[in-house]
């Protein structure tokens, strides 16, 4: 077993998977903590599914307009950021029930994604299988992707570091943030943009449908054992790392897709945490 593992680690594609899992755990744990304490899990799921529409559109533009540079991830980033901006704005919040607007945009994202992918001429343009977009394929990650992820992760962590105090006030008590003279509209937009970028990184690793797992399960576990936002984040990153490494190795050993394995390990950790966690145990 040990020998098998050390042999696996020597393969470059395994190294790439591990680095991707590492980055996803770090950014997922930190931003996921905001998602969990701010109760925007469902909105984050919405962002992921809307991003699917962006991926479909990017392929369609590659095909019909010959925009070879239009990487699917660019489409995902644009759609994710746009939906993040919509969800963070007061305008929509004051007119439509929030979960309804999430539901509407969620399915529109999925429908456009499938439709656009269907319209692409597969003989001239290579398209990722919809299942691998939906459930992720960490095996397909290339070196270039890792550089982009690393840059994004560093940028996200830097912004969290700078705005840590203000995000805490905002997510704990938005009204008080306003009284304190903080620009709550701007901070909400910034936070949702970070969530959107995180979602795009996670789509590459675990896929559209399983993004919620990486964002939600580690902080949901760590918040059972912590009284502080910063500790919750650090523990969530550790839980995410354990889950994704176990998931990656077990998928290699048993020749199963890694995304679902990661999610199942995380889910498996949630049960005992729920039983022994200080708060609700």
């Amino acid at each position: 077993m040990i020998q098998e593992l050390t042999e696996l680690i020597s393969y470059p594609f395994v190294q790439r998977m591990l680095i991707a899992g590492f980055l996803a755990s770090v950014v997922g744990g930190v931003i996921g903590t905001y998602v969990v304490v701010n109760r925007v899990v469902v909105m984050s799921g919405g962002i992921a599914h809307i991003a699917f529409g962006g991926i479909g559109l990017a392929y369609l533009l590659q095909d019909k307009l010959n925009w070879g540079w239009m990487d699917p991830m660019i489409g995902a980033v644009i759609f994710a950021l746009a939906s993040g901006a919509i969800f963070s704005s007061d305008f929509l919040r004051s007119r439509v029930r929030q979960d309804s607007s999430v539901g509407v945009l969620w399915v529109i994202g999925m429908a456009t994604g499938i439709l656009f992918l269907n319209l692409v001429d597969k003989t001239s343009t290579t398209v990722q299988e919809p299942t691998s977009i939906l459930f992720g394929n960490i095996l397909l990650i290339e070196k270039f992707d890792l550089y982009v992820f690393a840059g994004l992760t560093l940028g996200i962590l830097l912004i969290v570091f700078i705005f840590f105090r203000d995000f805490k006030i905002l997510t704990f008590d938005e009204e008080f943030a306003k009284i304190s003279g903080l620009s709550t509209g701007g901070l909400n937009l910034l936070l949702f943009s970070l969530i959107a970028l995180t979602v795009v990184i996670l789509i590459k690793v675990v896929g559209v449908i399983l993004v919620i797992a990486m964002l939600t399960i580690p902080p949901a576990i760590s918040s059972l054992f912590s009284n502080k936002l910063s500790t919750t984040m650090v523990l969530a990153v550790i839980v995410g790392l354990v889950g994704s490494f176990l998931g990656i190795f077990s998928s290699l050993l048993f020749d199963t897709p890694p995304g679902p394995m990661i999610v199942l390990w995380l889910g498996g950790m949630f049960l005992p945490a729920f039983a022994f966690g200080r708060k609700f145990g």
């Binding site: 304490v37 109760r39 105090r165 203000d166 805490k168 006030i169 997510t171 704990f172 008590d173 009204e175 008080f176 009284i179 304190s180 003279g181 903080l182 918040s223 912590s226 009284n227 502080k228 936002l229 500790t231 919750t232 708060k279």
Partner: peptide
């Protein structure tokens, strides 16, 4: 009653927020 009861935050941190402005 409008506060989130489950937010991971200590008493000192909540009070300190008042100094932000």
């Amino acid at each position: 009653a409008t506060f989130d009861e489950d937010y991971p935050i200590t008493v000192k941190e909540v009070v300190q927020m008042g100094r932000r402005k």
